[in-house]
Computed example of a mutant assay.
Amino acid sequence: MKVQIKKLHEDAIVPTQNFEKDVGVDVSTVEEGTLQPNERKVFKLGLAFKPERGYEMQIRPRSGIASKKGVTVLNSPATIEPTFRGNVGVLLYNAGSEPFHVKKGSRIAQAVFKEYEENVDVEVVDDLDETSRGSKGWGSSKM
Score class of each variant (00 low, 15 high):
residue 30 V to D: 04
residue 37 P to N: 04
residue 21 K to F: 14
residue 56 E to H: 10
residue 62 R to Q: 03
residue 38 N to T: 12
residue 78 A to L: 11
residue 29 T to I: 12
residue 41 K to I: 03
residue 48 A to N: 03
residue 17 Q to K: 14
residue 74 L to S: 09
residue 58 Q to F: 06
residue 20 E to N: 10
residue 16 T to Q: 13
residue 45 L to N: 05
residue 12 A to D: 10
residue 17 Q to Y: 15
residue 37 P to Y: 03
residue 54 G to Y: 02
residue 46 G to H: 06
residue 58 Q to N: 10
residue 40 R to P: 00
residue 26 D to G: 04
residue 80 I to T: 11
residue 19 F to T: 15
residue 10 E to A: 07
residue 51 P to A: 02
residue 81 E to T: 11
residue 8 L to V: 12
residue 84 F to I: 09
residue 84 F to H: 14
residue 15 P to Q: 00
residue 64 G to F: 11
residue 23 V to G: 01
residue 81 E to H: 14
residue 53 R to M: 07
residue 35 L to E: 05
residue 67 S to E: 04
residue 8 L to Q: 12
residue 80 I to Y: 07
residue 48 A to H: 03
residue 71 V to R: 10
residue 79 T to H: 06
residue 15 P to C: 06
residue 8 L to H: 09
residue 75 N to D: 12
residue 18 N to E: 14
residue 56 E to V: 15
residue 27 V to D: 02
residue 15 P to W: 05
residue 29 T to L: 11
residue 65 I to C: 02
residue 35 L to N: 02
residue 80 I to N: 06
residue 29 T to E: 12
residue 29 T to N: 09
residue 83 T to A: 15
residue 66 A to S: 15
residue 47 L to R: 02
residue 57 M to I: 13
residue 57 M to N: 04
residue 46 G to R: 02
residue 50 K to I: 10
residue 54 G to V: 09
residue 8 L to W: 01
residue 70 G to V: 14
residue 23 V to Y: 00
residue 48 A to Q: 05
residue 39 E to D: 11
residue 34 T to C: 12
residue 15 P to K: 03
residue 21 K to W: 11
residue 22 D to I: 00
residue 70 G to C: 12
residue 59 I to R: 02
residue 82 P to N: 14
residue 14 V to S: 00
residue 19 F to K: 13
residue 20 E to W: 00
residue 61 P to A: 05
residue 12 A to T: 04
residue 67 S to W: 10
residue 22 D to N: 13
residue 24 G to L: 00
residue 11 D to N: 13
residue 47 L to C: 11
residue 16 T to K: 13
residue 71 V to N: 11
residue 50 K to F: 00
residue 26 D to H: 06
residue 59 I to E: 02
residue 22 D to G: 03
residue 10 E to F: 05
residue 21 K to M: 12
residue 20 E to R: 08
residue 83 T to I: 04
residue 77 P to L: 09
residue 73 V to R: 02
residue 57 M to C: 03
residue 46 G to W: 04
residue 49 F to T: 00
residue 76 S to I: 09
residue 23 V to S: 08
residue 61 P to R: 07
residue 63 S to E: 06
residue 66 A to L: 14
residue 70 G to H: 13
residue 25 V to S: 01
residue 19 F to I: 11
residue 39 E to T: 05
residue 71 V to T: 11
residue 57 M to K: 01
residue 36 Q to L: 14
residue 73 V to Y: 07
residue 83 T to L: 10
residue 82 P to I: 03
residue 46 G to N: 04
residue 29 T to K: 09
residue 10 E to L: 09
residue 49 F to M: 02
residue 34 T to E: 15
residue 31 E to H: 04
residue 73 V to P: 06
residue 30 V to C: 07
residue 41 K to A: 11
residue 8 L to M: 09
residue 13 I to M: 03
residue 59 I to V: 15
residue 69 K to E: 15
residue 28 S to C: 15
residue 80 I to L: 05
residue 47 L to F: 03
residue 46 G to F: 06
residue 50 K to G: 00
